[in-house]
Design a protein around this nucleic acid. Structure first.
Lengths: 196, 196
DNA sequence: GTCTATACCTCGATAGAC
DNA sequence: GTCTATCGAGGTATAGAC
């Protein structure tokens, strides 16, 4: 951390890079990852393809950078959940965190579950560390060696919540209503007591 | 229907076209739709790209043709379900039919819910007739003007069952076990009485 | 009616000039 | 930090051999 370059956020310093990510996310959710060309991104920014390549070595890197914030949140949720001693508390923590994440990032999360472009980019770049793992969330939801019924229920819950949350059919629904509806569904699937 | 050409099925008459679809399906499930090039299909068949192009005007047509049988089944399920007078019976019929479809076509259905390539091709070619509609299935599951909770539950059920059914995590599970597990989850979400 | 040869344009990606 | 030029591969299209 010498001088010159500011480091984070929406600051004007980072300039193009940040604008690029915002633009890419918008285009991705509109046309899908594979349906978005570097040319489209470049045009939207008023630069050339090659200029985009200065900031990112490959398209996958853009995809990854777009997905990263949400993935980080997921990791944090998993980490915090694993601090709970009782499985029930772990389950509740993961479920609540996941639902909240889905609601806040609606379209992005739908992209996650539905776009091979994203999935591939994620798998490709399990960064340095232990990295995010869907199985880890599953394990926190249902324990290490779950019976078939529990495993299936948890899988349906995770994928269903993600995709339904991003579904255009629920786009009009406000965040609070969506959150409580998804939470309720999740609890029913995972056999957790419901609030009311 | 003059002479010469046989019309349907796996007959050797149709020859390449049928082989092509079989090959394409295999490649699609392996690499995804957008991850499968016409070249790969052509190579697998021992012909040129142009030969593939003779049988199908565009890649989308191949995608559509691969998806068609399952879509047809879905339409039939919806049609039969709408003959039931009580909503509960409709729900049960759609759920059982959908689960069965998912189990029998596992990987294909996963592709459906997960690959924009497929979704796009389907939307593009709502053939001649009334065509398939996801909303139609939803309406049969929860009725015309469902409350939010019911709508969300049904969405989670449909998408979750489809994706979980095609998930690699359950690939080892035999058809009967998978079917009954998915069915059970669906009934729980839709508030239908369970068998045992 | 079935296929090959060939060419076109766009895409992701690289190299090098300014 | 951005641009021009260029590459190989992918989808599309046509002309023509058999």
């Amino acid at each position: 951390m010498t001088v010159g370059t500011p480091d984070a956020g929406t600051k004007a310093g980072e300039g193009t890079r940040t604008r690029l990510l915002t633009t890419a996310l918008k285009l991705f959710t509109e046309h899908g990852v594979e349906g978005t060309s570097l040319q489209m991104i470049a045009d939207a920014l008023g630069v050339t393809k090659a200029a985009v390549y200065y900031h990112f070595k490959a398209k996958d890197e853009i995809t990854e950078a777009v997905a990263e914030p949400a993935l980080r949140e997921l990791e944090i949720i998993a980490e915090e959940a694993s601090k709970h001693r009782r499985r029930g508390a772990q389950t509740d923590h993961v479920l609540a965190g996941f639902v909240d994440l889905v609601v806040r990032h609606r379209s992005l999360v739908a992209l996650f579950s539905s776009d091979p472009g994203i999935t591939r980019a994620i798998e490709k770049s399990l960064d340095g560390s232990g990295a995010f793992n869907k199985d880890r969330l599953l394990a926190l939801l249902v324990g290490p060696e779950p019976d078939t019924a529990a495993l299936v229920a948890a899988l349906v819950a995770l994928t269903g919540i993600a995709m339904a949350g991003g579904s255009p059919a629920l786009a009009e629904l406000d965040d609070d209503s969506l959150r409580s509806a998804l939470l309720d569904v999740g609890k029913r699937l995972l056999g957790r007591p419901r609030s009311r």
